[in-house]
């Protein structure tokens, strides 16, 4: 039964269906668009930045010392992160929680910490610079919204690895989805 529908044991639905994953990928692509636009401003390819609510808030935030603390501006880092989310969300079929646990784990870690970093950036903005940035907030909201729906798939993979550990199968091979190793685990 689980073989045909790919529903994990003890679950009521398959967390790796496209209906589950596509909305997260779309959110990641929107986030990628916003972050790319902001990094074009930070890299001086665009002269002004769109800011409907907080006056010169965006300019203050996007030109702050913290945003240029790394070799590449922080928005570019965010854009790379969103791209990793989108790609990791697309790789693998609807049984990837057991056929390719590694990509599910990469996906979960990329979505989780990235969301957290975005929140931290929002937190630091008003405290350090007394300014808000509309598009930075929008990006943070997108990151936060992605976390919840991505985690169920990660849970299914972790439970699967847990079952692999207690079976005769090699956990290492199961994690990377090598050969027929996954057939030995339920």
């Amino acid at each position: 039964m689980a073989e045909r529908t790919h529903i994990p044991p003890g679950w009521d639905y398959n967390p790796a269906t496209w209906a589950q994953r596509i909305p997260i990928v779309i959110l990641a692509l929107v986030g990628f668009g916003i972050a790319t636009y902001l990094s074009l401003y930070q890299l001086d390819y665009v002269d002004t930045v769109w800011e409907p609510f907080f006056g010169d808030g965006s300019t203050t935030i996007l030109n702050s010392k913290i945003s240029h603390i790394l070799p590449i501006p922080d928005a570019a880092l965010g854009a790379i992160g969103y791209l990793v989310d989108a790609v990791a969300g697309l790789i693998g079929g609807t049984h990837r929680w057991r056929k390719m646990p590694w990509i599910v784990i990469v996906f979960g870690l990329a979505v989780g910490p990235l969301g957290f970093i975005s929140v931290m950036l929002v937190v630091f903005q008003p405290v350090l610079f007394s300014a808000w940035c509309t598009l930075c907030l929008a990006s943070a909201i997108i990151s936060i919204v992605m976390i919840g729906p991505a985690m169920d798939e990660m849970l299914a993979s972790l439970q699967y690895i847990q079952r692999a550990k207690r079976s005769e199968a090699s956990t290492w091979k199961v994690f990377w989805g090598i050969g027929d190793e996954t057939e030995k685990v339920a």
């Binding site: 994990p8 003890g10 009521d12 169920d152 849970l155 439970q159 079952r163």
Partner: peptide, 22 residues
């Protein structure tokens, strides 16, 4: 509404729900 094989706590349980169901 749904079951999650025992949820996150199952990951450090001796007899997790998802193994019983299996």
């Amino acid at each position: 509404k749904n079951r999650y094989g025992g949820g996150w706590s199952s990951l450090w349980e001796k007899n997790p729900k998802h193994m019983e169901d299996q």
